[in-house]
């Protein structure tokens, strides 16, 4: 990893950092996160259909 030495950098005041707080934006991203596949309707739909099909095959044969 490359390194850069920064000397005597101006210290950001606390007020400026506070102004950049945005918890709502973080919450929005929390809700935006994709659902894990095994928790999705698609997964359970496919799994359910497969189970029914398997059951029918076994019971009819």
């Amino acid at each position: 990893m490359k390194r850069k030495l920064v000397y005597n950098r101006w210290k950001i005041p606390s007020e400026e950092i506070r102004k950049n707080q945005d918890f709502d934006a973080i919450l929005k991203n929390v809700h935006k996160e994709p659902v894990v596949y095994w928790k999705s309707i698609g997964f359970w739909g496919t799994a359910g259909m497969s189970a029914v099909a398997l059951f029918l095959i076994i019971s009819l044969s």
Binding site: R3, L5, V6, N8, R9
Partner: peptide, 9 residues
């Protein structure tokens, strides 16, 4: 990006 090392007087 480069990893910075911030140091002052």
């Amino acid at each position: 990006a480069k990893r910075a090392i911030n140091i002052d007087d």
